[in-house]
Design a protein around this nucleic acid. Structure first.
Lengths: 105, 105
DNA sequence: CTTATTGTTTGACAACAATCCAACTATGCG
DNA sequence: CGCATAGTTGGATTGTTGTCAAACAATAAG
């Protein structure tokens, strides 16, 4: 099991988080993660309407902004929302964004 | 006194609001409006570090996303945050973003 | 009427971003 | 080992964005 580089909680920048979530494809990925929890990249990218390499690019954007966590397990890569970290850094922000996206919090 | 075209409250899109706020210059403008209320474009753009035409471009981006209101009064144009509209459309969103930006709400 | 003030528009330009495709890497399976 | 699966990377393309400068428009003031 390997971890990939992620920004530390205190290094997460507000405008970068907002930027990451301002793309509809990335927002949809985040919504899926919020609804269904940790999942593999393939599952997260299913029926997303973009090429898998494009999805991969979006995973990186979300990871570098501090929105998601990735961990490699064997052949699979699991991604998940950094809910606790985001809530520690920006209390209430993720919840209000998810509510705005009609995701039950 | 003239009003300029703004999106109706129900037409404000989440990703467009996040996009508008993902630029540091626009975020700073919004912070100023949150702290000091309605102000003219010149006041809002003071010491922003960008050319006035660039600031004007940002006002339009914020207006088209539904984040700010503009009204022309004589030679001056006043801009203000659409707090009530944003709160009606996305409850708690603006507050949590402003809190994240260290603006007292 | 002329001038100063306030802000927008247009053009140019460089940087960035979203996308697809093809090639590649890495891991597990038989 | 050889093959399939899961994802990433690099290149190409196309479009968007942030910026400045210069020209413009509209209004108020002298």
């Amino acid at each position: 099991m390997r971890l990939l580089p992620h920004p530390a909680t205190e290094d997460i920048q507000l405008t970068e988080v907002l930027r990451a979530l301002s793309d509809p494809v990335r927002m949809e990925i985040v919504i899926r993660l919020a609804l269904r929890g940790e999942m593999t990249c393939t599952t997260a990218g299913d029926d997303l309407g973009v090429h898998k390499s494009t999805a991969s690019h979006h995973y990186r954007a979300l990871r570098e902004a501090g929105v998601i966590m990735s961990k490699q397990e064997g052949r699979l890569k699991y991604i998940s929302l950094r809910r606790a970290d985001l809530d520690a850094r920006f209390p209430g922000l993720l919840d209000s964004i998810l509510s705005a996206a009609h995701v039950p919090v």
